[in-house]
């Protein structure tokens, strides 16, 4: 039986998530793994926005910030369970994306870039400056999700990093499944159509403004959930989660790996998340290396790392 692209992608992801722990030299790697998964979720949202719909955002970390701080604040101020706070964060992010997306998405290219960038910076500024609520640039504690204790009562005893590895891994699988469903659905096709030619998409009846907005809102929810999971996992969060650099990281991970495919983008998230871990010995060289990788991949592998590598392998095979 021939696997569809969707089944193959999900299978590869699931196997990677399940098997790699057997090769972890220490429990520290569970943490690196779950960081990759959390970034992978945000980046899967970027695939829908950039790869499917062809729109750009340099401000999606703003939504990650909303998700993260909702998990920090809603349990304290509203008495909400942290898990529900994650949902609330996603709802707020979606509403926010819907509100600002309507005017912003009329813009194209660099203009859209600077408008979204402005939004992201505004969010991070509010988080850093409203000390009475957010406690400012030094960050704030985030309550425990409580799910690990629940699992323990049910007889599944995991240590903290194992739990978060598994939990974020499952969340990533879910996110990837949704994104892959979308790709081949009528909506996904319309998104890719407007990416290919906006004018032709309009003449076949695609309501371009509405479709772009949908992609923007969906990707904002992914970013928000990613931010929430990061906050819950670390039990602490700073305004950097909404910062300019984090927005750039999201876009870079997606495009570096290959924004056209979910697997490629998650691959990009893996590479960029591991880069600092690999370079800890050469901490001073981290920025230099990051910048170099960004430039080299974009110049020499325009489709992104994974598609280019796959093409190379196939080329050899023939």
């Amino acid at each position: 039986m021939k696997l569809s692209n969707k089944q193959a992608t999900l299978l590869v992801l699931a196997l990677l998530i399940a098997i790699t722990p057997f090769f972890f030299p220490s429990s520290y790697y569970y943490r690196v793994g779950s960081l990759i998964f959390v970034n992978g979720i945000a980046v899967t949202g970027m695939v829908i926005l950039i790869g499917y719909a062809g729109q750009i955002s340099l401000g999606h970390a703003g939504f990650a910030g909303i998700g993260a701080y909702t998990c920090a604040l809603a349990p304290v101020h509203l008495g909400l369970h942290p898990g529900l706070a994650l949902v609330l964060g996603a709802v707020i992010s979606a509403a926010m994306a819907w509100l600002i997306g309507r005017p912003i998405l009329r813009l194209k290219g660099y203009y859209l870039g600077v408008a979204t960038l402005g939004f992201g910076i505004l969010v991070s500024m509010v988080l850093a400056n409203e000390r009475d609520i957010t406690r400012g640039p030094d960050g704030i504690e985030v309550p425990d999700l409580g799910l690990r204790g629940l699992l323990k009562d049910m007889g599944l005893n995991l240590n903290n990093s194992e739990f978060w590895y598994g939990f974020t891994g499952l969340a990533l699988l879910l996110g990837a499944w949704l994104a892959l469903n979308l790709f081949n659905s009528p909506t996904g096709r319309a998104l890719r159509a407007l990416h290919g030619s906006e004018i032709a998409a309009r003449t076949v009846g695609v309501d371009v403004a509405r479709l772009k907005l949908q992609a923007f809102v969906i990707s904002a929810v992914y970013a928000s959930v990613s931010g929430s999971l990061l906050a819950l996992q670390n039990k602490f969060i700073t305004p950097d989660v909404a910062g300019y650099m984090h927005s750039i990281e999201m876009v870079t991970m997606a495009v570096l790996g290959g924004a056209g495919s979910v697997l490629g983008a998650i691959f990009g998230a893996g590479i960029l998340t591991m880069l600092p871990q690999v370079l800890t010995v050469f901490a001073e060289y981290e920025q230099l290396m990051l910048g170099l990788v960004m430039m080299l991949v974009m110049i020499f592998m325009r489709e992104g790392l994974l598609p280019s590598v796959l093409r190379l392998i196939r080329g050899r095979g023939e």
Binding site: I56, L58, Y110, G113, I248, V251, T252, V255, L256, Q287, L288, L290, G291, L292, V293, M294, M295, M298, I299, R302
Partner: peptide
């Protein structure tokens, strides 16, 4: 891609 290249250059 061009945005990422020039941002990469700035980080570099």
């Amino acid at each position: 891609s061009l945005i990422i290249i020039t941002i990469g250059a700035s980080i570099f």
